[in-house]
Structures are given as C-alpha cells and as structure tokens.
Design a protein around this nucleic acid. Sequence first.
DNA 1: GCATTAACAGCCG
DNA 2: CGGCTGTTAATGC
Length: 224
Amino acid sequence: MIAADHLRQIAFWSADLTEREFEQARRGIVEKAYGKGAYICHRGDRLDSWSGVTAGLVKLGTVSRNGKAVTLAGLRAGGWFGEGTVLKNEPRQYDLVALRDTRMALMDRTTFLWLFENSVGFNRFLVRQFNERLGQFIALVEYDRMLDAPARLARSLAWLFNPVLYHDLEKHLDISQEEIGLLSGISRQMANKSLQILEGKGLLRVERGGITVLDLNGLAQYGG
DNA sequence: GCATTAACAGCCG
DNA sequence: CGGCTGTTAATGC
C-alpha cells in the first residue's frame, strides 16, 4: 500500500477515479526498486502486476532469433504498461530492463481486474492507453528500413514525451546519449551525431546527461 | 561504405 | 575520481 499523495503524484490516471476506486488502487499498489542494469522481468516470466515507472528509465525489448537485441519502447517516470499482459493473464512477451536505478509501482492483478470491472474512469484511461500503444507499435514497422539513425532517434524520443502516455508537460529528461542509443537501437556514437543534427534543426537542446524537447511534433514527424 | 565497437582525451559534478 | 561527451581509429557486415 502506498500513500494517497504519492499515488496522485505517480499515477496521472488516478485523477479519473472515484474516492472508493482511488482507495482500492492505493491498497493494491506496492513500490519496488531496481538497480541499474537489473532485469525487471524476462520474456516468459509471470509478472502478475500492472506496472508504472515512478523513477528512472526502463527499456522494453526482446531478442530476435539471430540473437540481436531489439528495443520495442522506452519508458520514463510516469509511464504505465503491462495492461495487455495482465488482462490476458499471459506470460510477458518481452524483457524489461532498468537502464538506470529505477523505482516501479506494482498493482496486483486482483486490484487491476477490480478497477477494470468497476471503474468507468479507469476504463476510459485504458482505452486511450491501448489506442496510443497500438499506434506506437504500428510505427515500429517503419523504423527498421525506412528511417535513418537521426529519424529513429527522434521518434524514440518523441514517444517518451507522448502526451497521452505521460500526462505531464515536462520537456526535459535526464538521459545519457548511451541510454538514448539503447532506446533507439543505435550506437552511442550515432546517437551523439544524431542529437547534434536534431539540435541544429532546433528540435531539441542537448545538455549534459539530458535533453530538452523544443519541438515535439517536429521530432515525432522527423524524416517522415 | 556505413555503422558498430574500441579507445581516449576533455569536462564537469 | 567517475560518468558523460565528442572524436578518431579499427573492425565487421
């Protein structure tokens, strides 16, 4: 169980709940810490919790048949995921790795299903979330061959500032160029070059150990 | 050729 | 010092 104030801070969707639903959610959530590089779960694991990143950075990925690591998405603090897996009661279809020291909020399956059955507000949130993730994964299809390195990096970053998946209006993110490379599926050196190109176009500002987005739409559509 | 890995010097907290 | 950054050199597909 976590404190009410804390839940409001880490879960934007909690604003859509009634008092009773909010209380139920609060009782069903625990918080857990993961060190840098730690696996939050491996593909095939049963992690029976719906999960939110409350601090840190998480990579959602998998390993292709030829053994190459494939990044599906990155998640920063404020992002929630795993609703599909919990609803279907399936093993995880991908790996989750903490790219830096990370804290996760875990909602047990029973609580999640109770909200699913009882809360109109929660269901509205879920539909929006599913819709957005669908778009995110469809967009992955064009990543591989249709986009060059700067474009892939731009799109990956843009998803970290998606207004539906993250309700905050934060434009700055603490993230190293190495981490950006991991999330974009390119090397640190290419990430460095790509960031400089995007900065030159006025789409973002490169800082030490972080970036600030100046033109989110420009990033999301860059190269396409 | 191009991107990736390796390697290194400079910088900053 | 330790982590991040910007470059260059070597290596691999």
